[in-house]
């Protein structure tokens, strides 16, 4: 258990001692339906925070809002104290917040290596004139060296020069993570990284997530597997119907009646 949060109250929207991300008043509705409607959310730096909640709770919509892929109807949020309202998704990424997708977005007709190297942020050859006349090969070579251990770490080295489209579903999840790491983000948002992945690989993925925290990143991840949540989270935030209904350490949230209620619908009294 992570000590910094030891004295933090176990209640929705509670302030954290050292938040990397602070959001307040975020709202987004789709024709009448309030997909996200939260008063306040703070994410503690250097932790793994799990975002849980029943289907349709607004978790992915929240990710979309935080990462700039969707625009909220109201509200503001900050990364390291810098406001992110109206900042386009690509700039959010450049400011150090990277997200992955529920349905893996591997770039099928790029090789695994190209997928990872694409994520490098320092390549001037990505600018048109530099591509034509500039010198980008040295940096490209350096990036190749940087990508190599990442590809190895995720066990994709034997596939490095194959099209990403030929990978299995689980391998694509690994690739997406390797790609995200190449950006060297401070905060990484993982949308159901273990969905549809076999148990052995799930365990491997979870270990990778813990390793991310240990090298100093902050992780928020959406997860349905409660065992996984219990095992690796420092903090758990539970959403239902667009709102945060509980926050706290894993064991605490799991025992919270409001959470059980949200997962089981409104049949609380009938639970055996």
């Amino acid at each position: 258990m992570y000590d910094a949060l030891a004295s933090t109250a176990h209640e929705p929207g509670v302030p954290k001692p050292d938040p990397i991300m602070v959001a307040s008043g975020l709202q987004r509705s789709f024709g009448g339906l309030h997909a996200v409607d939260l008063e306040s959310l703070e994410i503690q730096r250097h932790t793994i925070t799990s975002l849980i909640g029943p289907n349709g709770a607004g978790k992915t919509t929240l990710f979309n809002l935080l990462s700039g892929f969707d625009k909220p109807d109201a509200g503001e949020w900050h990364l390291n104290g810098g406001p992110l309202v109206g900042i386009p998704a690509f700039q959010v990424a450049r400011q150090g917040m990277i997200r992955t997708f529920q349905l893996t977005r591997s770039l099928a007709r790029l090789t695994v290596r190209e997928n990872v190297m694409l994520a490098a942020t320092n390549q001037p050859g990505e600018r048109f004139w530099h591509a034509l006349f500039g010198k980008w090969r040295d940096i490209e070579e350096a990036n190749r060296e940087k990508a190599r251990p990442l590809i190895e770490r995720f066990g994709l080295d034997h596939m490095a020069d194959e099209y990403a489209g030929t990978l299995s579903g689980g391998q694509r999840k690994l690739l997406e993570m390797a790609r995200a790491l190449m950006v060297e983000p401070e905060l990484i948002l993982l949308d159901e990284p273990t969905a549809g992945v076999n148990p052995a690989l799930t365990q491997e993925l979870l270990e990778h997530i813990i390793a991310l925290r240990d090298i100093g990143m902050t992780v928020i991840f959406i997860e349905h597997d409660m065992d996984a949540v219990q095992n690796i989270s420092d903090w758990v935030v539970c959403m239902a119907q667009g709102r945060i209904i509980a926050e706290g350490p894993p064991a605490d949230v799991a025992a919270n009646p409001a959470v059980i209620d949200a997962y089981l619908g409104h049949h609380h009294g009938e639970v055996p």
Binding site: S67, F69, A89, F90, Q91, A93, R94, I98, R99, T100, F101, R105, S106, L107, A108, R109, L110, E114, M117, L118, A119, T121, E126, R179, A180, V183
Partner: peptide
Amino acid sequence: RVIRSIREDEDAARSLG
């Protein structure tokens, strides 16, 4: 490489900055 990645999936390209 960037424009090919946009062809494959522009959201992924965007998410990488």
